[in-house]
Design a protein around this nucleic acid. Structure first.
Lengths: 208, 208
DNA sequence: GTCTATAACGTGATAGAC
DNA sequence: GTCTATCACGTTATAGAC
């Protein structure tokens, strides 16, 4: 454990705590003190790693983008099972994010967009576009492969799914975790997953 | 224009500005100064009408609840055309709220829930429950009356529609107003409105 | 009802010692 | 890399004059 390793570790710990706080309380809902105190360091130490709060926010979004990218890049390049992609995303939301009243960082950013530094706005826009592009491909390919059944444009459908997950994760804070379950149940229903229609469609390979 | 009338008027003006600010920037995203300045009064004058910011927030939600109630109570009591109710809600969101990057107050509250006074949390919970109850009835009755076509539980479907509108109105800040259009398009598609299937269904009076 | 004046506090941020 | 010390600022809120 030399000095350099310790430095990196502190930086990561700061990001970890900041991300949890941002998800639960929003970017404007926590202060440097909320990070420094549990880490047992002083505010000035955080400013060393992230000179301004905007720097911290951008770093948060950048790291989040890399995680998302690692989960989606394989499918974006070579395709695969679309249902697995969708269910992976749902699990990502349900298990990691929605537990303990958090939301996706993109959802957090979207709800605070007007009050956030410009650098974060830019970083967020790219992220939101990327995830919608990915979900669109999942739905498009999935419908073609007979895994999903829905009407309308895959881009529209992607947006509907993403926004409802986003909204449900926020509403779950008010109405409890069953909110997420209900939203996911209906998302599946509206994709024909598990329904009579789609089972039939799976067997025949085309819409009856 | 006597003293009493002027008093009421100021109070309303405060609420109007506060509501607009809350929708665009969130409840924690504006200060008393943002209200007093455009009104040409001082902060202390606002404290006279609303002693604490929590009082202002609860008043905002109470008034919002009354407006919503006036739009939904007739249908809740005597039923009616479900499609009109849905389209009215969509217009409410699209025209009044989403324009100029605002959101529904319930969406605002949900996204800030953890950082908001307890009194506002309580007021918001009731509001969110009421609107979901209404939307559930709209969907249930509408499906029964042959206006909508969808699988699954009306309560789940209501949640999906409400949360996607909520999420889309937030995402529209990042991705532009076309975001709302796309979400609404898919909501209609997933209800069978305007689709081949439902036109057929309308003609025959039963699902083919 | 609205004003002036002020209090009490938390915040992001910086300078310089170690 | 982390510390102490400090700054400048905006915020909600209150007291008391008019």
């Amino acid at each position: 454990m030399n000095a350099a390793a310790q430095a990196i570790d502190t930086r990561t710990q700061i990001l970890d705590i900041a991300e949890q706080l941002a998800r639960q309380r929003g970017f404007g809902g926590f202060s440097y003190r909320d990070i420094s105190q549990p880490l047992g360091i002083k505010n000035a130490a955080i400013h060393y790693h992230f000179p301004t709060k905007a720097d911290l926010g951008v770093a948060l979004l950048t790291r989040y983008g890399e995680i998302l990218s690692s989960l989606t890049s394989e499918f974006m390049k070579h395709g695969g099972c679309a249902l697995d992609q969708l269910e992976g995303f749902i699990a990502f939301y349900g298990d990691k994010i929605c537990s303990n009243q958090g939301t996706c960082l993109i959802a957090t950013l979207a709800s605070e967009f007007a009050t956030v530094p410009a650098a974060m706005q830019e970083a967020g826009k790219t992220l939101a576009m990327d995830i919608r592009t990915w979900m669109t491909k999942v739905l498009d390919v999935g419908r073609e492969q007979g895994e999903f059944n829905f009407d309308g444009d895959p881009g529209d459908k992607a947006l509907l799914i993403l926004t409802s997950m986003q909204g449900a994760s926020q509403l779950a804070r008010m109405a409890g975790p069953a909110t997420m379950d209900a939203a996911v149940r209906q998302i599946r229903a509206d994709l024909g997953i598990g329904s009579e229609l789609v089972r039939k469609w799976d067997r025949t390979g085309a819409i009856a």
